[in-house]
Design a protein around this nucleic acid. Structure first.
Length: 417
RNA sequence: GUGGUCAUAGCUCAAUAGGUAGAGCACCAGGUUGUGAUCCUGGCGGUUGGGGGUUCAAGUCCCCUUGGCCACCCCA
């Protein structure tokens, strides 16, 4: 029995899965960098206040935060998401707008772990600060869409909604409060608690008894101001112009309280469990201000790495593989020759590995085979005496003895072995 | 946090009505004294997640605990 294992909801990403993760973030970076986004690397730890601004009606803040007092008596927390950090960073450094950044890395939420839901989970995402144009909403959504396409996913669906301008939103919230309050005890207890904190979130309930009241609830669309309608119409027109299919879902309300106007979510078609939200985002025009910066409009999205990868598994796409070796050096005369040859090969740009512990040739050949190396470079007594090496292409098995000094040139000239 | 369910070698699983654990894969070593991926032989490997209890006897029953998974919740 091992003395230790990972804490609940924490896990090791082992090879070869780890190389897939790296490829995943690389594809993401390629997509967004091509659109002018640059990477921001915020700290994992922030002042607790940065996150409490996200909203006191969200569990992410009230129940799931990894917060503690550090040795300097500061109230700090492991970030539960990165949007707040980006906004804090903006308020702190005041970069020129539009500020287009992307990020990738782990977040922490103290929840009951499940498949596709971990206490340490990775997200990739982008945020843009300082632009009000609905065409930016379109760009942001389009980039996520493009990313899914690059991965090869075909069963992702996009749902969008608008929460209206802040005033629209508050009027709607009041209407909901009145509507659900009228239901009284017919509403589940959980929903009554949610109602007291944030009526919007009651729409998210999946509890059976709540269903009829949710169905009969007021529609956000009836509360839009002209301004909100214009913005949302423009977003939809833009999505259509780019041939990005979407579904309007007036009852879509996202978890974090800071959203205004456009919000959207991506759902996986294959994992139809409670964990089918692959990613999502929206506008959060008041967040920077709440963090002490100038009134600045913002929009962005975050995509869950784990869930997206699960969706890839289900669709049988994006099975990135680790880099194969070019050569595996088999040395049966002590190991020094292998040390020299691997160093030479690596300096010449070849990926090369070797056997250790002076194992038998048979054992080393097995290692060469397992390593997936293109060729085995074999050195024994005869080769040392003749100053040669044997180059054995593992696929064909058709080996050649060549002068040692010509090894690099030989391999360079026979890349397809 | 609430409820449910599961937990046997590194991995996937077996083990009759409770009688003191097996297989395949993987790994290692041999099968022509220099050469792998097939095949053959052998080997390594488990105080049955951990602790306690019932029993002559528990992987198999009971309790506690740890962890995975599922639903709620929440969200990525």
């Amino acid at each position: 029995m091992p003395s230790f294992q990972t804490s609940p909801g924490m896990r090791d990403i082992l090879p070869p899965e780890s190389s897939r993760w790296r490829a995943f973030t690389q594809v993401f970076a390629d997509v967004v960098e091509a659109a002018g986004y640059q990477q921001l690397i915020p700290p994992l730890l922030e002042d607790l206040g940065v996150f409490t601004r996200i909203g006191d009606a969200t569990d992410v803040v009230t129940k799931e935060m990894y917060d503690f007092v550090d040795k300097g008596d500061r109230r700090v927390a492991l970030r539960p998401e990165q949007t707040a950090s980006v906004c804090r960073s903006f308020a702190q450094h005041r970069p020129v707008t539009p500020w287009k950044v992307f990020y990738s890395g782990p977040n922490f939420r103290y929840e009951r772990p499940q498949r596709g839901r971990y206490r340490q989970f990775d997200q990739v995402g982008i945020e843009v600060l300082g632009v009000d144009d609905p065409m930016l909403d379109v760009e942001v959504i389009a980039l996520a869409w493009e990313f899914y396409e690059q991965l090869g996913l075909q069963q992702v669906s996009l749902i969008v909604n608008s929460l209206g301008e802040p005033d629209d939103r508050s009027h709607y919230v009041e209407a909901l409060r009145t509507h659900f309050a009228a239901a009284g005890d017919a509403l589940t207890e959980q929903s009554r608690i949610t109602l007291a904190k944030n009526p919007l979130r009651v729409l998210d309930s999946k509890r059976e008894p709540d269903a009829p009241f949710i169905a009969s609830a007021p529609q956000i669309t009836d509360f839009y101001s002209d301004e909100a309608t214009a913005h949302f119409d423009a977003v939809q027109a833009g999505l259509r112009a780019l041939d990005i299919p979407f579904t309007l879902e007036p009852k879509l309300v996202r978890g974090l309280d800071y959203y205004r106007r456009t919000i959207f979510e991506f759902q996986g078609g294959t994992l139809d469990s409670a964990q089918n939200a692959l990613g999502g985002g929206g506008r959060y025009d008041g967040l920077v201000e709440a963090l002490g910066g100038p009134a600045t409009s913002g929009i962005g999205f975050a995509l869950g790495v784990d869930r997206t990868l699960l969706a890839c598994d289900d669709e049988g796409v994006f099975a990135a593989e680790p880099r194969d070796l070019d050569a595996f050096v088999v040395d049966v005369v002590g190991g020094i020759e292998a040390a020299k040859l691997t160093a030479e090969l690596r300096q010449a740009g070849f990926a090369a590995d070797r056997g250790y512990d002076n194992r038998s040739m048979k054992a080393q050949m097995k290692l060469a085979n397992r390593s997936n190396a293109a060729v085995a470079v074999i050195v024994g007594e005869e080769e040392v005496d003749a100053n040669t090496v044997v180059v054995k292409p593992m696929r064909s098995g058709d080996q050649q003895t060549i002068p040692r000094s010509e090894l690099i040139a030989y391999l360079s000239g026979n890349r397809n072995l």
